[in-house]
C-alpha cells in the first residue's frame, strides 16, 4: 500500500444548475495512482476529466465517494491557462505566490527559486518582471506550470498542460515531467486528448466516457488490447503513427 499516493473510490459528482438541470459529471469513478507513476485520463470533451481533477485537489466537493491522498502536497496545472494567472501580478510574483503563501524561505531565496523554475519551463529571466498580458497563451501556460512546480509537490494534476504549446516546447515540458518523476519520484495525473502523446509518456491510462471510467490499465495493455467498445473506437481513430517515429522510441 505504501507505494500508492492516491486512492479514489466510487467518486461521483452531480452538478445542479440554477434552472434545475442536473449533470452527472462523475459516476462511481475508482482508480489508484502509484508513487512516481504517470496516470493519464483520456476521453471526449465533457466526459468529466477536469471535474475529476478538481475534486481531487478540493476545488469541487464530491457528491459521494472517497479520495485518499497519501502524499504531502498536490498541485494542479489548470486547463485554462490564460485566466490562471492574475493580470495584475508579474509572472515572477505569480510563480513566487505559492512560496509566499506557505512562507517558504526568505524573499531572496523565493526569487531564486522562481527564476529557477521559470528557466526550467523555458522562460527567460526577464519574464520575472513582466505581466502575463505581454506573453502568448503558450508562454502563460509555461508560467503556470512553473508555479505548480514551485512547491515541489509529489502529485501534480496536469489538465491539458501542453495543449496550447508548440510541438518542440511540448516535448520540453513532457521531458521536464519525466525528469521530475525520475529525480523526485513525482506522480502525475495527466489529462490529455492527444492519444499518441499519452501512449508515449504514461504508465497507466484511464478512459472516461460520460462520467464513467470505462476502462483503465497499463498503457500498452490498453492500447494493444482495448476491452471496452468505446476504447476500441478511440484507439482505432488514432492516426497511423509514423513508422520512423515508432522505431525512434
Amino acid at each position: 500500500m505504501s507505494d500508492v499516493i492516491l486512492k479514489v473510490e466510487n467518486l461521483s459528482k452531480t452538478f445542479h444548475s440554477t434552472n434545475g438541470q442536473t449533470t452527472q459529471a462523475l459516476d462511481k469513478v475508482s482508480f489508484k495512482i502509484r508513487r512516481g507513476e504517470i496516470f493519464s485520463l483520456v476521453g471526449e470533451s465533457g466526459s468529466g476529466k477536469s471535474t475529476a481533477g478538481r475534486c481531487l485537489i478540493g476545488l469541487e466537493r464530491p457528491s459521494s465517494g472517497s479520495i485518499v491522498f497519501f502524499g504531502k502536497r498536490m498541485q494542479i496545472i489548470f486547463q485554462d491557462a490564460v485566466s490562471a494567472l492574475s493580470p495584475r501580478l508579474t509572472i515572477g510574483q505569480s510563480v513566487m505566490e505559492p512560496l509566499d503563501i506557505n512562507h517558504i524561505g526568505s524573499r531572496s531565496s523565493r526569487k531564486e527559486k522562481a527564476l529557477e523554475f521559470l528557466r526550467l519551463v523555458g522562460l527567460d529571466e526577464s519574464s520575472f518582471y513582466r505581466l502575463p498580458s505581454d506573453y502568448s497563451g503558450g508562454q502563460q501556460q509555461r508560467a503556470s506550470i512553473a508555479r505548480a512546480l514551485a512547491l515541489e509537490p509529489d502529485l501534480i494534476i496536469a489538465d491539458e498542460p501542453v495543449a496550447s504549446l508548440d510541438v518542440s516546447i511540448q516535448a520540453q515540458v513532457i521531458s521536464l515531467f519525466q525528469n521530475l518523476r525520475q529525480k523526485n519520484g513525482t506522480s502525475f495525473l495527466l489529462i490529455a486528448h492527444d492519444l499518441s502523446l499519452v501512449r508515449r509518456v504514461s504508465d497507466t491510462v484511464g478512459v472516461m466516457k460520460d462520467g464513467v471510467l470505462v476502462e483503465s490499465g497499463a498503457t500498452e495493455q490498453v492500447y494493444q488490447n482495448p476491452q471496452h467498445p468505446y476504447t476500441q473506437a478511440l484507439i482505432q481513430a488514432i492516426p497511423v503513427p509514423d513508422p520512423a517515429f515508432r522505431q525512434h522510441k
Binding site: 476545488l59 490562471a84 492574475s86 505559492p98 503563501i101 508555479r147
Partner: peptide, 21 residues
C-alpha cells in the same frame, strides 16, 4: 477567476485572497 482557485489550491486563506486578489 482561475487564479483565485489556484491561490486556494496553494493554501491561501480568505484574508490573503481578499487583500491580494
Amino acid at each position: 477567476s482561475t487564479y483565485i482557485e489556484a491561490a486556494r489550491t496553494m493554501g491561501a486563506g480568505f484574508w490573503y485572497i481578499l487583500f491580494k486578489h
